[in-house]
Design a protein around this nucleic acid. Structure first.
Lengths: 340, 340
DNA sequence: ATGAAAGCGCTAACAT
DNA sequence: ATGTTAGCGCTTTCAT
């Protein structure tokens, strides 16, 4: 924990105790708040004052590792966010940042890192995992849940020692597609590469069925796939739009692709929504705040709700496991307005 | 650290020792790698195997808090990043992510959080602070440096118990302005609100002097200010461009405003660089990868260099304090190409 | 109202 | 080659 040259040994609880002429126990009482106004347990306000002054004078800082080993609490919240530049991740981070304000807990982000290994290295009172899909993840999570309070974001996983946060798409994807097909006869899709393999499932499935409902044909040249990062998303959007017969509307399977698509369209001198309408999925803050604001389907109050839940769990890691569901809806904004 | 319902007491080093029929010391030796192939200190490979099997079978995980209290090492790197959505921050995060790959250290991001309070709560082997300007920060940092290895990014601070990372703009800002004034007679500026107060200093100062060198007048309507977030930056760019007599080039004081400016221009159906050229400051990955790629002035190899430095410090927190300087240069790319 | 003392899980001398 | 043991800084009974 220390330092260059001659290390001025950090003050411990014992140093403080000596300086204040009391025992370490008393110092601990005072400094961990067991001496408040309530009559709970008593340290006279004189000694309390002396202790506080000594601590201040010595620049005493409690050693969190030592505290953690005794109490089993780290006051840490860990957020594993897979793609940090995704507005979804940024929205989570921002919401959590506000929620923990005075809760005495510190949120740390594990970015683009493998939570599978990182979690065993560093514990936290609660850890949020934004993506768990892989094969054996269910078992692994169950195992990790033995020693960490886990909150997992997943549409498919069932709670098993860990909480599951789920956003229930329900009928809202259908709504989104119907919203587009109501005024467009060509609707394109931007989706992640793997999703094409399951053409009846998930977000891409919603696209396919939406076309069917509207009696529109599924055109290969109106579907573009990307993998992972935002540049790939941008390129996919260009592929879709910079062709002889581009779609006049785009169903993007996440806000972050949708935002890339809008930028791509504008670069191609296309007006959004005039020349091409865009809807995203996720209802992120960035989508809402951009210009034109992004029409998106997603859960209402999701980020704040999630943040509150995480703070709750951090405070009470022993609470019963539960699944937290956020119903979705369609948020019609400027990038794909309602037809008049 | 644990859990809902009946907590299956987590295995400790002692549990493992019993199961393997050895002492805790032996377990510790094996599990913290003091039994390698070298003849350093010896644990027979049979016992090593037995220990490893026992540990595996019991699902043993070393308690990091306990380890930290003994060794004083947390294997943690803390990155305090003030505006997480800024490509600069994302570039830092990404570079660090690669650098720590097999270094056994976990990078945690403190996002938009006040490092002043957070650091005292949670220690780390090395903590990077991306912005320290405020009044008393110099003293505070010196104090925090007593108990943490600090690496501070600052143009002005002097090392004082903490390392300073500095990117030496040198003549490169002048270059950037000259690059623009060589082919443009109207150059606008996007800068942060407070910078206007010091019209001869910093990045805004470089703009002012650049105009002077070229014999161009400083026009109030060609300077727009923003504060903080990206939406404000976007608005400022629109203000600058959506007027009767907009500039044909923009000097943006950071990549993130520059990127917002390009998006704003494209939305206004302006071609970049045809109708308006843009240069940024920072030379971030996002700027480099976008379309059109962003001409920017900034340090070469900065992010990777910084990441390596941080990993070094994490491994050897007692190394002598130093200042790390990255010379800047102008990276001419598509958003403001060279004149032919 | 305060203090003595027993550990939490782990590592590192120092034995053997 | 392996075991004993003394703590790291802190919290928390249990005495006083």
């Amino acid at each position: 924990m220390n330092t260059a040259g001659t290390a001025p040994r950090r003050a411990t609880i014992r140093t403080v105790a000596q300086a204040a002429g009391v025992s370490t126990a008393t110092v601990s009482y005072v400094l961990s708040g067991r001496s408040g106004n309530t009559e709970s347990s008593g340290v006279s306000s004189e000694t309390e004052l002396r202790v506080r002054e000594a601590a201040l004078g010595l620049g005493y800082r409690p050693n969190q590792a030592a505290r953690a080993i005794r109490t089993g609490k780290s006051n840490l919240m860990m957020l594993s966010l897979t793609m940090l530049s995704d507005p979804w991740s940024l929205s989570v981070s921002k919401a959590v940042g506000s929620a923990v304000a005075d809760a005495g807990i510190t949120p740390m982000i594990l970015a683009d890192t493998d939570w599978r290994t990182a979690i065993r290295r560093q514990g936290a009172d609660v850890v949020f995992i934004d993506a768990a899909d892989g094969e054996g993840d269910a078992e692994l999570l169950a195992e990790l849940a033995l020693s960490n309070r886990l909150v997992v974001f997943s549409e498919t996983l069932e709670p098993n020692g860990f909480d599951v946060v789920r956003s229930m798409a329900g009928k809202s994807m259908e709504q989104a597609m119907d919203h587009l097909t109501a005024s467009h006869s060509t609707v394109g899709c931007l989706t992640s590469a793997p999703s094409r393999k399951a053409p009846r499932q998930g977000r891409y499935g919603a696209y396919v069925r939406g076309l069917e409902r509207a009696g529109l044909e599924l055109r290969e040249d109106h579907v573009a796939t990307f993998d992972g990062d935002e540049f790939s998303a941008y390129e996919a959007a260009v592929t879709l739009l910079d062709q002889p017969d581009p779609p006049t509307a785009i169903f993007a399977t996440s806000d972050f692709v949708a935002i890339a698509a809008i930028h791509a369209a504008q670069r191609l001198r296309l007006d959004v929504p005039g020349d091409v309408a865009v809807v995203g999925v996720g209802n992120t803050l960035q989508g809402e705040a951009m210009a034109p604001s992004l029409t998106s389907v997603g859960p209402a109050g999701f980020f704040d709700g999630l943040a509150r839940f995480l703070v709750d769990r951090a405070h009470d890691p022993a609470a019963a496991v539960q699944v937290l569901e956020f119903p979705w809806q369609l948020f019609v904004r400027d990038s794909a307005p309602a037809v008049s």
